[in-house]
Design a protein around this nucleic acid. Sequence first.
DNA 1: TTCGTCATGTAATGGGTTACATGATTAC
DNA 2: GTAATCATGTAACCCATTACATGACGAA
Lengths: 187, 187
Amino acid sequence: MLEFAILGLLAETPMHGYELRKRLGELLGGLRAFSFGSLYPTLRRLESKGLIAQSAPLPDVSAPPLSGRRARIVYELTPDGKEHFAGLLADVSPTAYDDEQFGVHLAFFAKTRADDRLRILQGRRRRVEERREGMTTALHRTAERLDRYTRELHEHGLEAADREVRWLTELIEHETTDQTAAERPAH
Amino acid sequence: MLEFAILGLLAETPMHGYELRKRLGELLGGLRAFSFGSLYPTLRRLESKGLIAQSAPLPDVSAPPLSGRRARIVYELTPDGKEHFAGLLADVSPTAYDDEQFGVHLAFFAKTRADDRLRILQGRRRRVEERREGMTTALHRTAERLDRYTRELHEHGLEAADREVRWLTELIEHETTDQTAAERPAH
DNA sequence: TTCGTCATGTAATGGGTTACATGATTAC
DNA sequence: GTAATCATGTAACCCATTACATGACGAA
C-alpha cells in the first residue's frame, strides 16, 4: 500500500520523504496519513530493491543557502521502479478491490489503462454489492434480537454500501461512454 | 479490538470459538470478519489473563451423542473478565472514536452507561468533523492540480463524512431526549 | 523563548493475516 | 463421492504503529 502510493507519487515528480508524507495525506483525501515510522523504512526498502534512488540535487542557484538546514534526501523512480509501478497499476486481481488498495488505485487512475480502469471499477462494485448482500441477509436473520444501536450501525453501513455502489455505477457509466467516444472518435 | 468484541459477546452468553466468529461478523454488520488465525490465539491469551475460562459443559441429555465430533471449547467470562469489560465500555478516551473501535463501542451501547454513550457519540462526531475539515481545506488547496478521479475520491469521502456527522447528530439528539425523559420521568 | 514546522531516522510492539494441518459430519 | 460446514489450532509473515532521538529554522 505505502509502497504503491510512494511509487505513484514519485512517478509524477521526485520528492523527499517529508513532502511525500504530506502529499500522501492529500492524495487519499485525509482518509489515511502514514507515520514517519513507516515512511522512512519503506523508502529504504524501496531503495534497496532498486525501485527508487536518491536523485543528485542539481546545484540550484536560486535556492536559499541551505545553511545549516538538514539535508533533504530526494528520491526518484529508477527504470525498474517505473516498470514495477506500471505492473501495480495493471493489477486487476481481487486485491485491487480491497478498501484501501482501491483508493490508491483510483488516485492513480489517470495513469491507468482505460480497460483496466473499467475492470477495477466493476470488480470493486461487485465486491461492495456482495458485502451489501451479506449485510442485508444478516440483518434479516438477526433483526429481532438486535438492539437499537446495533441496528443503527447495520443500517448506516448498509446505506454507505448503497451509496458507494451508486457512485461506482456513475463512474463506470462515465467510463464506458468515454471509451466509446475514444473508440469511434469520428462521429 | 478483537478482545473487546469477544468479551462483549461472551458477556451475553458463553460460546465456543467457531460460533464467536460468526457472531463477530454479524455484530459489525459484515464490515469486518476476523480470521481463525487471530481468533483462537486471542482466546488463549484472554484465558491466560484470567478474563475468560472454559466453562464445564453441562451433561446435556438432549444433545446428540457427540460421537466422534470434535469437542467444542465453550468459554465464559470470569468475574475479572466482567470487570475488565465494564472498564472497556466506560473508556471514553480518544481511542474510542477510532473508526473500528467506535463500531465495537456502538455495538455494545446497550450495555454502556447513558452519559458515556453521549460522550462517545460527541467525541466521534468531533473526530469526523475534523477529518471533514481537513478534507475540504486539502481539496481547496489542491483543487486545480487534481485529476477527475482523485477529485471524485475526495468528494465521495467528503460526502461520506457529512453523512456520518448527520447520522451521529441524530443519534445524539435521540440520546439527549431519552436522557431528559429518564431524568424527569414524572411529567 | 517557545512553539510550530521542517527533516530524518531507530526500536519495540501491535494486531492482525495467510497458509497449513487435522479430521469428523451433513447434505447433495 | 465430494463438497460445504463444523471445529481447533500453529507458524510465518506483513504492514503498519507509537515512542523515542536529534536538530535546525522562522515566527509570535
